[in-house]
Amino acid sequence: MDPFVVLVLCLSCLLLLSIWRQSSGRGKLPPGPTPLPVIGNILQIDIKDVSKSLTNLSKIYGPVFTLYFGLERMVVLHGYEVVKEALIDLGEEFSGRGHFPLAERANRGFGIVFSNGKRWKEIRRFSLMTLRNFGMGKRSIEDRVQEEARCLVEELRKTKASPCDPTFILGCAPCNVICSIIFQKRFDYKDQQFLNLMEKLNENIRIVSTPWIQICNNFPTIIDYFPGTHNKLLKNLAFMESDILEKVKEHQESMDINNPRDFIDCFLIKMEKEKQNQQSEFTIENLVITAADLLGAGTETTSTTLRYALLLLLKHPEVTAKVQEEIERVIGRNRSPCMQDRGHMPYTDAVVHEVQRYIDLIPTSLPHAVTCDVKFRNYLIPKGTTILTSLTSVLHDNKEFPNPEMFDPRHFLDEGGNFKKSNYFMPFSAGKRICVGEGLARMELFLFLTFILQNFNLKSLIDPKDLDTTPVVNGFASVPPFYQLCFIPV
Rank of each mutant, 00 (worst) to 15 (best):
L43G: 09
K432P: 15
N202A: 11
A477P: 07
Q340A: 15
L29D: 07
P35I: 05
F407W: 06
H99E: 09
T167E: 11
I284Y: 09
L67M: 11
T364D: 05
D2R: 12
I269S: 09
V113R: 11
L152N: 00
A86Y: 04
K48R: 14
E92R: 06
G91I: 00
H411D: 01
E253S: 14
H368P: 01
P101F: 09
N378E: 12
V5S: 14
L234G: 05
E72T: 11
A103C: 10
K459G: 06
A321I: 15
S23H: 04
F110R: 12
Q276V: 13
T364R: 08
V473G: 08
S180Y: 07
V394P: 03
L313D: 00
A441L: 02
G27Q: 14
R108T: 05
T302I: 12
L201D: 03
P317N: 07
T305N: 03
G25C: 09
C266L: 13
G228F: 07
G70C: 05
L287G: 04
L9S: 12
D2E: 14
K138G: 13
L197V: 07
R329A: 12
P37I: 02
R26I: 12
T304H: 14
I169T: 09
I207D: 05
V8P: 07
D256E: 10
L9T: 14
I223C: 14
Q193N: 12
F376M: 07
D341T: 02
L87I: 07
F126H: 09
I269F: 07
H344G: 12
N455L: 01
N116K: 09
E142C: 07
I19D: 03
N217S: 09
K84Y: 08
K465N: 13
D224T: 10
E142A: 05
F65A: 02
W20A: 09
T371C: 09
N398D: 14
Q184H: 13
F239L: 14
K322L: 12
V355L: 10
L388C: 08
F4M: 08
E241T: 11
V436Q: 02
K84M: 09
P363F: 02
G98P: 15
F219D: 04
P3M: 15
F4P: 00
L294F: 13
A161K: 11
H251S: 04
S162K: 15
H99A: 11
N176K: 02
P382K: 06
D262I: 00
D49Y: 08
W120S: 07
H396G: 06
D256P: 06
A238G: 09
Q146A: 11
T348P: 01
N259E: 12
Q278W: 13
I462N: 15
E72R: 14
S242C: 10
H368W: 04
E438Q: 08
D468A: 15
D414P: 02
I462T: 13
Y483Q: 04
L152D: 01
V8G: 13
P404I: 03
F425L: 03
F412T: 00
Q278N: 15
R125I: 07
S140G: 10
D466M: 13
K158H: 13
K270F: 08
A430K: 05
F407T: 00
R329T: 10
G137H: 08
L361V: 10
K249I: 11
I359D: 00
P402R: 12
E241R: 14
T320H: 09
D468M: 11
V177R: 01
V83S: 03
G437C: 09
F134V: 12
R410N: 15
S209L: 10
V248R: 02
N474V: 08
S23E: 13
A292I: 11
A149H: 01
S336R: 13
P489K: 05
M339H: 09
M426N: 03
G109F: 04
I213Y: 10
F4R: 04
I264N: 00
E300Q: 12
R357C: 00
R357T: 00
C179K: 04
L380T: 15
V153F: 02
T130N: 08
P363K: 03
I112N: 04
N418H: 14
P489R: 03
I223D: 04
K185T: 09
D463G: 08
Y347Q: 02
I269N: 10
I462K: 15
F263I: 05
L268I: 08
T450P: 02
K28E: 12
M129I: 12
P63V: 04
I222P: 05
T229M: 14
V351D: 00
R307H: 07
E72L: 00
A430I: 13
L445Q: 04
D463N: 07
I42R: 07
G25P: 15
P480D: 03
Y483G: 04
N116V: 06
Q192M: 11
H411Q: 03
H251W: 00
Q184K: 13
P211Q: 08
F65Y: 13
V75N: 00
G111M: 02
T299F: 08
H411N: 06
K138Y: 12
P163M: 10
K383N: 07
F65E: 02
S422I: 03
P260N: 03
C10D: 00
L234T: 07
T450S: 13
Q184P: 12
L54Y: 06
S53Y: 03
L11V: 12
L485S: 06
N378F: 03
N259C: 09
F69A: 10
A291R: 02
T302C: 09
E318Y: 10
H368K: 08
L7G: 11
R329K: 15
Y308Q: 06
I205Q: 15
I264H: 01
K432M: 15
F194V: 07
P404G: 07
I289V: 12
G32C: 01
L445H: 05
K322I: 09
S209P: 06
S127T: 15
V351Q: 01
A103H: 13
R150A: 14
L156C: 08
N56P: 06
M426C: 04
S58D: 03
D89I: 09
F412W: 06
R144L: 14
P211T: 11
T34E: 09
F428K: 00
K121G: 10
N133P: 10
Q146Y: 08
K52L: 08
K235F: 08
E318P: 08
C266R: 09
D408T: 06
I289A: 11
G135P: 14
R186Q: 07
V323Q: 01
F226D: 03
F100A: 15
T348K: 01
F407S: 00
D265Y: 00
N41M: 00
L445N: 07
R377E: 05
K59G: 10
P37C: 02
L312N: 03
N176T: 01
F425I: 03
A291S: 11
N418T: 09
I207F: 09
E72M: 04
L195P: 03
G98L: 05
L29P: 06
E325I: 10
F65C: 04
D466N: 15
E253Y: 11
V248N: 01
Q193F: 11
P404E: 06
V5A: 13
